[in-house]
Design a protein around this nucleic acid. Sequence first.
RNA 1: GGCGUCUUGGCCGAGUGGCUAGGCAGAGCUCUGCAAAAGCUUGUACAGCGGUUCGAAUCCGCUAGACGCCUCCA
Length: 494
Amino acid sequence: MHLYKHQELTVYNSLSKQKEKFEPIIEGAVGMYVCGPTVYSNVHLGNCRTFLSFDLVFRYLKHLGYKVRYVRNITDVGHLENDGESGEDPILKKARIDQIEPMEVVQLYSVDFHQVMNAFNALPPSIEPTATGHIIEQIQLIEKIIKEGYAYLINGSVYFDVVKFNEDHAYGKLSGRNLEDMISNTRELAAQSEKKNPQDFALWKKAEPQHIMRWPSPWSDGFPGWHLECTAMSTKYLGNNFDIHGGGMDLKFPHHECEIAQAEACNHESPVNYWLHTNMLTLNGKKMAKSTGNNILPNELFSGKNDILSKPFAPTVAKFFMFQAHYRSILDFSNDALEASEKGFFRLMDAYRSISEITPSNKSDFNITDWRQSCYDAMNDDFNSPILIAQLFEATKFINSLKEGKAEITASDLELLQKTMHDFLFEVMGLVDISETSSNDGNKLSEAVELLIELRNQARANKDFATSDQIRDQLQEVGIQLKDGKEGTTFSLN
RNA sequence: GGCGUCUUGGCCGAGUGGCUAGGCAGAGCUCUGCAAAAGCUUGUACAGCGGUUCGAAUCCGCUAGACGCCUCCA
């Protein structure tokens, strides 16, 4: 059961900038924290890519037999649009525009997020904490940082003193920056800030009178800084030093850098052993982002209602498309690429389904054990899903040869082949076996088409090809394609 | 301006100092009454220029282009 004892997993650690053997702090157990969404609008497909990548990581770790505690937060306060005095909480802004409570905004988009993740068949995390649910922990953290001497109070707000921290720690080690460069390269700054240095960041902000998301604290009625919640919640549930911290590449700086600073300031140890960063999903060659509007929403994808889409795509197909690229590579979204993936996806699923129809014999023409290990090798190499998928296509070719009677397999190998395909397709990647017809047909329609297929078969039996071709061609015209196979005729909707 | 990443065959996308990634499309074949569908077979590409090397697409340098972070963003 403890596959991890036999499979050597390596992961690319953003901190060391190289692949490292994965060794959890406690044998057999993994603590993983991933930065979740800020819930002030619908998650877009780019956001989803990150969460689906970490779903793959979560699933694979579990598959290897690790006991995984996966914590993914929901940011529902404190994430300001700008760091300056003009910064506004986007949740508050949305609440003001829609004239609803901030917590209604939070609820609305949290529910949306969960529905989307569910549609993608992503597993829920073990713990999904919210920032507003951990105000006390965050206040305690600030008190600790102040006590350690790395924060200062001004006008009811508390800021992290990056310059002070950098004197005895390395601020910028994750993102490869050094503070001196940052200070000398600081672009001419707008409005004078109350911060001592532009690099300092807020731990607690005093709320203006009209600011309705506010909590009492020793310093003022206010709200916590964005970076703080992740430190508070990750250390609360995973400890001061835990295995994996993940998030999008765009969070590396400043967010994750600040998390490291906060944690080191109060716990005197590096919080995270392996930092994993997923790359961006682009649209038209540019990063998908909420703020620029350059994005596509999952529901647009599922319904096909977006100008760049030629048709609807199933969530699992979109997931498969994403997994055909490595999580650390930029992936460009396009209709053509998605269509190409969809065809491959159905071919893979058809092959998987046909395994159960294969009759075993007394020898095998394919080394299933080696092939199975090559699937693990792919995933062991920093979760290389595109290589894994390539391996599954190798098996697909073999399965099709078996189906045609051009190859042989023993009963035990057949069982292992099926199990391996099942494990990687459904358990590790979390794909869903939808068939081309079942996804969008209605019973009445299929009964009617079955009738026409029957009539056509009768005509063909009578060599009345004029009639049989008429049925076939006219169905084709209305978007119903007949497919003649060895086991009879099926159809699909275009 | 600073820091960093990327540039692969018609398209998407892995990988890497010498050995076929894979998918889609295209071509050929099988099947079929004919088609379609499906299956099989088939691809020697790595931005440009120079260097290191027995050998580089893979390492180094320069040039061009693209992207990301430096302000909210997964």
